[in-house]
């Protein structure tokens, strides 16, 4: 069921953020920063945009989602649980030896995960294969692929971008979670990407820039992407790493670190 109320979606996004913190705190391991930055994107996709049914996770005609930045699995798992693919209780199993929720998404263990991921730079190629399959079979489903901005340093992303463009995959929508940070620091210091929009434009994409932490803006961007014919769309979503937890916001050190008990309490209080 499609949720159109931005207030309702914002509430879900907040629940997703709380669960991200709980997952990472529970496992004492995982990636909170990038998970928090993309929580709104995932919420809009799963609750407002994608044609999916959690009761039929393998339905042939469903829209697909590839989390190319696989380390942000806590955000995906929380979203899938919220959507009803599995019980929210399962989130306690995140990164645990007897659980299904692997450190990085595993399509064979977790209902609702359309592709396993984790090694960066590989998701867009896979999404292209899915989008091509949709077109070949005239299935009409759309494919969404979420990339990190740091991930754009992987060469395969650009090999894949050429493929998206060559085959005019207008049923493909790439989202770049542009939070500006990577493990070693500011992206501009580690390996400056400069003009992400310009790069995708030159690779033949329709490009939309949007505030990736604003739900109404995201809805508008995704709706617009659906109307573009003859070329793939890249939504460059400007986000805040660690969004919603004051001490995590815009701090590269929270890329892959678990909060202490005290920090956990503060975070949960802020996300009430």
């Amino acid at each position: 069921m499609k949720i159109v109320s931005c207030e309702a979606l914002e509430k879900i996004a907040k629940d997703v953020r709380r669960e991200i913190i709980e997952e990472v705190y529970g496992a004492q391991s995982g990636h909170p920063g990038g998970s928090l930055s993309c929580a709104d994107i995932l919420t809009v996709l799963y609750f407002n945009q994608m044609n999916i049914n959690p009761k039929k996770p393998n339905d042939e005609g469903r829209d697909r989602f590839v989390l190319s930045k696989g380390h942000c699995s806590p955000a995906l798992y929380a979203t899938l649980a919220q959507k009803g693919y599995f019980s929210e209780k399962k989130l306690n199993e995140f990164r645990k030896i007897d659980g299904i929720l692997q450190g990085h998404p595993d399509m064979n263990k977790i209902p609702g995960v359309d592709m396993s991921s984790g090694s960066l730079g590989q998701g867009l190629s896979v999404a292209n294969g899915m989008a091509l399959s949709s077109k070949m079979g005239k299935m009409g489903y759309r494919v969404y692929c979420l990339l990190g901005d740091g991930e754009l340093e992987e060469g395969q992303v650009w090999e894949a971008a050429m493929t998206s463009s060559k085959y005019k995959l207008d049923n493909l929508c790439v989202i770049v979670d542009n939070n500006g940070l990577q493990i070693d620091g500011d992206i501009k210091d580690v390996k400056n990407l400069d003009d992400i929009e310009g790069k995708f434009e030159k690779f033949g994409f329709n490009v939309i820039t949007v505030n990736g932490n604003k739900i109404p803006d995201l809805i508008k961007a995704f709706d617009k992407a659906k109307t573009v014919k003859g070329k793939p769309t890249a939504i460059v979503a400007i986000t805040t790493k660690g969004k919603g937890v004051s001490f995590m916001e815009n701090k590269a050190e929270w890329h892959g670190k678990a909060p202490s008990e005290e920090q956990f309490k503060i975070a949960m209080e802020e996300l009430k």
Partner: peptide, 18 residues
């Protein structure tokens, strides 16, 4: 897929999921 073997294998994987 052009001279892009990594992309080729990934695209093949995407086809297989469908």
């Amino acid at each position: 897929m052009g001279i892009a073997e990594q992309d080729m294998i990934g695209t093949a994987a995407g086809f297989a999921t469908c």
